[in-house]
Design a protein around this nucleic acid. Sequence first.
DNA 1: GCTTGACCTGGAGTGCACTCCAGGAGCGAC
DNA 2: GTCGCTCCTGGAGTGCACTCCAGGTCAAGC
Lengths: 129, 129
Amino acid sequence: MPAAGLTIAEAAATLGLTSDTLRYYEKDGLLLRPVPRSSSGHRRYDESDLRWIVLVTRLRATGMPIRDVRRYADLVRAGDGNELPRLELLQAHREQVLQQLAEVTSHLGAIDHKIGIYEDRLRRLEISA
Amino acid sequence: MPAAGLTIAEAAATLGLTSDTLRYYEKDGLLLRPVPRSSSGHRRYDESDLRWIVLVTRLRATGMPIRDVRRYADLVRAGDGNELPRLELLQAHREQVLQQLAEVTSHLGAIDHKIGIYEDRLRRLEISA
DNA sequence: GCTTGACCTGGAGTGCACTCCAGGAGCGAC
DNA sequence: GTCGCTCCTGGAGTGCACTCCAGGTCAAGC
């Protein structure tokens, strides 16, 4: 009978994280619950753990600080009744991300312009060579 | 007779940085030259200094590490003849930024979806109240 | 029954990019 | 001539997010 759930190494590979990071997230209160253990005390991640950690990685990858992920996890862990603060937290993050995207896009435009200048210059050097 | 160029505080305000950061960039080799000094040894930033630092902030704001900005500054400082490596560095960075933008945008889509779910749920709670 | 390998814990260490600080100098205003 | 301001330097300190390590447990395979 195979054990239910993934080992920490399997979960890490699936999620694109390291085992160390998974332990760190758990210790830091980013997960909804202590990950269940096998009889020998090893972590076993089930589907709901993985689904949550995927969300955590999305929040992290869009620049949300650990401390805000923890605040969000705290809210979800607290159960029903605080949907509004959860929504507000996500909406605030969304605004941040949009602003960040706009800023980066605009800077990228300027960098692209500079790239164009170098390309022109190099084309001309090539021709005159 | 007013001195030519901005003081470090003025330059910092103009660029949206701090004086400490400007000194740090200079010490770390991110600038094209040591910033010229007044007779009393205070930095005076001229237009060319500012233009370069604007580029530095664009590179930084799009996620280029300090060490790569320094490599780019080294190339520019070395003068004509290495346009190709400069171009390649910028193009590589461009690809990074595009990939980053795509990734963030995709994660944002998933977060938006979650926001939609909360909005629906809250709307329903409101109606049934 | 002993080795091997994956996992455990608490805690120390790392890399990055600033940010702050102590001690000191120059300069205009009073 | 001294107060207050801005600036200088070298170097220490900070916050963040991991990442690594020592020393130990446990189950499976030989």
